[in-house]
Simulated scan of single mutants.
Amino acid sequence: MLPDFEAWAIFARVAARGSFARAAEDLGLSKPTVSKAVARLERRLATPLLHRTSRRLSLTEAGKSAAEDAERIVRAGESAEAQAMAASAAPSGTVRLAAPMSFGLAHVAPILPEFLAAHPDVAVDLHLADAQIDLIGEGFDVGLRIASLADSRLRARRLCEVRRLVVGAPAYFERMGRPERPRDLAAHSCLGYAYLPGWDRWRFFDRAGAEEAVTVSGRLRANNADALTASVRAGLGLAVQPAFIVHDDIAAGRLEEVMADWAMPPIALHVVTPPGAFRPARVTVLIDFLVRRLTAAPWARPLTEAA
């Protein structure tokens, strides 16, 4: 008999999402259809793939191994279909795109109408979250990440450096003075971005490469950088903010940068995609568009200038 490819594909999504209901929603199927497909695969393999309780699903040992195989089967099928379609068809279909929340709202969502107008047969499913998304497990085609990327299975293209600036409101500096070097920040109110590892320990390097670190404190911490902006503008304290968030505020004089001779460890904007040599045309045209538009942004520091 031929393999039950439909059941393998459905099981791959259940394993990735950890839920029959979420997998059914992703696939546009009913929950009973999804459950029956997994049960059918378990009967065929003569082994349980999932532990089922009233509250959650978890993979059995056999299920963990099968989930890896299922993912490879789905990727191979998608690649085969995409290659067959690409030779004769214009870009079409849906691209699932993941991006950080603040960056996505400010710099991705506003340019998507231009992309959609240029490619009327392509749709974009945009997912915004500051937490890092599992592109492979959750079925995304493209991700934008702002970080110093560790090695992974993902394909990554570094687009530009993202500078992190110490900023505050003019009123704050009139009241509290200006820090000249990192150790001075210990005497200032510093607002924290909770997704940074060691959010209250700020490390800087001067132009000669000397390092200085300081433990900071303040009255506000948030897991989204934009959530700090109102408090910084109001003079509640200082914050380390990426240039793409504060560029307009600095240009308008609402915020000012301090300690320009000191820099935090470099991070960059990357386009990341699942592994595999072939990309559907719809994914390629979106990546090309994002690269062209985002690297030309006024806050984007060219890689040739990056430290």
Rank of each mutant, 00 (worst) to 15 (best):
V271T: 14
D141E: 10
A39N: 13
M1N: 06
V232P: 13
T60I: 11
G218Y: 10
A99E: 04
V124Q: 00
P302W: 09
A306Y: 02
L41N: 01
W299L: 08
A87E: 10
R96E: 04
I136A: 14
A277H: 11
G168K: 06
A9D: 05
N223P: 15
I250A: 07
L159Q: 03
H127M: 00
R43G: 11
F205T: 06
V240Q: 14
A297G: 08
G77H: 06
E174D: 15
L112M: 05
S102I: 02
E42C: 12
A76V: 01
R22F: 02
W262P: 11
A62N: 12
A24L: 10
M85F: 05
S79R: 06
P170S: 11
T229H: 10
L165G: 02
P32H: 08
L97M: 01
A225Q: 15
P3W: 03
T304W: 01
A260M: 05
I136G: 08
A89K: 04
G177K: 10
A9E: 12
A186V: 14
R40G: 06
Y193L: 12
L45T: 10
A131R: 09
A150F: 10
I146E: 14
D121P: 00
A147M: 13
L50D: 12
L144Y: 00
A46C: 07
S65Y: 05
A129I: 00
F11T: 10
E6H: 09
F140H: 15
W8S: 06
G218I: 11
I73R: 12
F103N: 08
G104C: 04
P274K: 09
A21C: 01
A82P: 03
D69G: 08
P280V: 02
A277E: 14
A109M: 09
A84P: 03
A90N: 01
E25W: 07
T47S: 12
E212P: 00
L27G: 04
L185I: 08
V291T: 11
S231A: 15
T295M: 07
Q83F: 03
A123C: 01
P100K: 00
R183T: 12
W299T: 14
A263C: 07
E114N: 04
A222N: 10
G253Y: 12
S102H: 01
K36C: 02
A187T: 13
A39C: 08
L112T: 01
W202C: 04
L196F: 06
E81A: 04
R55C: 00
G192T: 15
F244I: 11
D226L: 13
A87W: 01
A117D: 11
L165H: 13
P302L: 13
D261E: 15
R96D: 02
L97P: 05
E305C: 04
V167Q: 05
R279D: 13
E305P: 03
G93C: 00
G63V: 11
D151E: 15
A15K: 08
T229K: 10
G104T: 01
E257W: 04
T33N: 07
R96Q: 04
A300L: 10
